[in-house]
């Protein structure tokens, strides 16, 4: 069946089974490879996108469940205020290593900051513990989120 999906402000029609996870529609059908596959069972967060602004595991989100919701992926998150701050902080703090988990980390962090501009450590724990990083960049992720949460004028960077 054909479904229409709204991704990063554009509408796409895709002809797949309704239970096809959004992740594969993004990566394999539409060629948006920034969203990653890590586990397929909502355990790692590599596939995190925003569905109407909420961090969502696309690997367990059937395309038929979207009902016209607005999807945002790593490819477009830099256009949002929170996303841009997070990306900058990620570079300033040298967070990435292999980088494979980082699309998902950035999407989770951007959703956190958009909803909660001043997260506490335990807010960060809650928002980010669903995202695994095998390279162990957790300490830097926490620091980068704190930096991104600073008002722009106080942001030092690095």
């Amino acid at each position: 069946m054909a479904y229409s999906v709204k991704i990063n402000g554009k509408t796409y029609n895709v002809d797949v089974d309704g239970d096809t996870p959004l992740l594969w529609v993004l990566r394999d059908v539409l060629g948006m490879i920034g969203t990653k596959f890590g586990c397929g069972i909502a355990q790692c967060g590599a596939c995190t996108v925003h569905v109407d602004g909420a961090a969502t595991r696309s690997c367990v989100t059937p395309v038929e469940s979207l009902n016209g919701s607005a999807i945002t992926t790593i490819e477009a998150i830099g256009a949002t205020a929170a996303g841009a701050k997070v990306q900058k902080a990620w570079l300033d703090r040298e967070v990435v290593q292999c980088g494979y988990c980082q699309s998902g980390q950035i999407m989770a962090a951007a959703a956190l900051l958009a909803a909660n501009p001043k997260p506490t450590d335990s807010d960060i724990d809650d928002a980010m513990s669903g995202n695994i990083c095998r390279c162990g960049t957790y300490g830097r992720i926490r620091e980068a989120i704190k930096q991104a949460a600073q008002p722009a004028t106080q942001s030092k960077g690095g």
């Binding site: 969203t35 990306q87 570079l91 990435v96």
Partner: peptide, 27 residues
Amino acid sequence: AKRLDAPAKVNGTAVYGIDVRPHGVKI
């Protein structure tokens, strides 16, 4: 020194092995 590979890894454009899509590729 700043990591030279970092920018592409924060904006989703870095291409890992799993991301290649030669024309007509099946999965």
